[in-house]
Design a protein around this nucleic acid. Structure first.
Lengths: 339, 339
DNA sequence: ATGAAAGCGCTAACAT
DNA sequence: ATGTTAGCGCTTTCAT
């Protein structure tokens, strides 16, 4: 049987209350007993039963994070940030992947609720926010949406400043003296639209025309990102007035794009500069090291965690917040020519 | 306040006992009340408090999984398998990343124990197994090591049959009529040694000599895998009697290796075949689609989950098991020439 | 077929 | 400085 407070108490001829007090750092205990208790607790490898204490206190000192998948490098940094924020306040973090399935996501959330987590962070797949509104009607624990925002959201949200992603990438290419900047834009999502907007803004602000045929949509969404980047670039290179700068929605598309250029003997970065997005350690260190937009995932996670903690502490007094993290550019060789 | 059994009971003029029985599918309840209860439970979005029930039953119907990182694609399939096994028996799964930190791993395990999970699955970073032995002395919940095995382990273990990884890759190249097969071997770990062993076995069994200069160690472990694969292959190509088959410890190394070959105008797969390992969807669909060893992560996870469940059910009667999953080859263009 | 009482391990509030 | 009592939400056991 697992060691309980009662066992330690009996062992030391004290009441379990005393042990409990020591463990929670109450001050009305003599230094001597405190030391004795701590010693024995360690020896016996006592591990408190959170279920029991939460029943009494209504707190588990644990936050739950639901995310779509375990395999995406970019989520890793976010998790790390959240974990750091949680740990700093003595909170634990438990995670649950929803396997890219919106319905499964809901079930995971229920698992967390039944485990009595004190706050819930969600990289959600839901398109709308109705499920969460219903949820908050019955039981209201702090809720923080991370990285992905369902439409019409009113709750806490910490995400990426997508307009800035597009703007920063584009401005960098402009500073690299690029005159004809192509954008391999990603899927038709709200986030992708924001990035395209940033791209256009940057061009405008620097007096460059937006040429719509330089913004390339994926023709075959079922293809790999690599191929999509590759083929889009092949087409761009056939254009009269070939682009001298290419920015892509993802690192993988950028890698595909660079390969297309290489295969046509285009020199990088002298003749053409490239910027990816994601700053994936693996992809950016291939062939020609790729300049990329770092999503600042750790900072994002940190902010999300802090927001959750504040909401736990602040009761319902604190109103929903919306925080956008600014990405930053990481320069590498793919754009280091004429900068 | 969250809805409790008592609330539903009051609402329906029943005792909370009756509600509890309905929820757990006891049979001594009239169909009519059962229907009434179920209806109301749904309407009120009742979510049971696992903390409370576990206190009584000693079970949370939840398994915990500790893994080094959230960002590795290969772990994703494993998690999926475990989750599937768990779900099939009505168990929940919660995950916790240890951020590649062995000490942090131990703390995560304690979080799970204090949360009262019914079983623990671990992709461990520990080099030895002493921490776990101590742990099991005080409180013995089922423990399953997954994918990575600390030295001298006596507990349940489900992992990859690493010898087979090396053998299958090598045999495939042999069947592709390769005569001089190089191996870009990975780190100096037990798993990597096993794979090298499989490679040698395959050569021996097919009457090919093991040429030690065809087994390449990473010279600069601080470099990216891509670069290591690239540079190793450049050196191999300078060799008198250049290899006609290359297998690599990872997909990324194989991609680097192929790039090196391409840059020297070697035709793939006509002049040289390549096999990677990991079957990473992204990497294998680049440039020249890469033949790779699929780690069968989902099956691995499934088995691990089932083992954990069996251990929960079987009490301590069931003795530690060791299960090795056989990988399988996924053919793609990089080795599809003269097969 | 339904319900009352007791108790799981812990802690808030109140003695001593 | 230490201990007692009661109760968190649930389920086990035993009535009714």
């Amino acid at each position: 049987m697992r060691v309980r407070l009662k066992d330690i108490a009996k062992d030391l001829n004290l009441s379990k209350m005393t042990i409990s007090k020591v463990l929670r750092g109450q001050t009305d205990i003599s230094d001597e007993t405190k030391a004795r208790v701590l010693k024995r607790v360690k020896e016996l490898k006592y591990i408190p039963n959170i279920s029991a204490s939460s029943l009494r206190t209504g707190q588990t000192k644990t936050m739950g994070l639901v995310l779509p998948s375990i395999g995406k490098p970019h989520l890793s940094a976010i998790v790390d940030g959240i974990r750091h924020a949680a740990g700093a306040q003595g909170y634990g973090l438990i995670v649950s992947p929803s396997q890219e399935d919106a319905e499964y996501e809901q079930r995971q959330i229920e698992v967390f609720l039944s485990l009595q987590v004190d706050a819930l962070l969600i990289v959600s797949l839901q398109e709308t926010t109705t499920f969460f509104e219903q949820m908050q009607r019955s039981k209201s624990i702090p809720l923080v949406f991370v990285d992905h925002r369902p439409a019409g959201i009113m709750q806490n949200y910490v995400g990426l400043h997508d307009v800035e992603v597009g703007r920063i990438a584009c401005e960098h290419l402009i500073h690299c003296a690029c005159k004809r900047i192509a954008y391999l834009r990603g899927p038709r999502t709200a986030a992708a639209d924001m990035r395209a907007k940033g791209y256009r803004q940057a061009l405008n602000e620097h007096g460059l025309a937006v040429q719509s045929d330089l913004v390339v949509e994926s023709m075959h969404p079922e293809e790999s990102e690599y191929r999509r980047g590759y083929e889009a670039t092949v087409r761009l290179l056939q254009r009269r007035g070939r682009p001298d700068g290419v920015m892509a929605y993802s690192d993988m598309m950028a890698v595909g794009a660079m390969d297309a250029a290489i295969s046509q003997a285009v020199r990088i970065p002298e003749e053409m500069c490239f910027v990816g997005c994601g700053d994936d350690a693996l992809l950016c260190s291939m062939r020609i090291p790729l300049t990329s937009i770092n999503i600042a995932g750790r900072e994002l996670g940190l902010k999300a965690g802090q927001l959750a903690l504040a909401a736990i502490g602040g009761g319902n007094g604190s109103r929903p917040q919306r925080i956008l993290i600014k990405p930053r550019l990481v320069r590498r060789k793919s754009s280091d020519g004429h900068c």
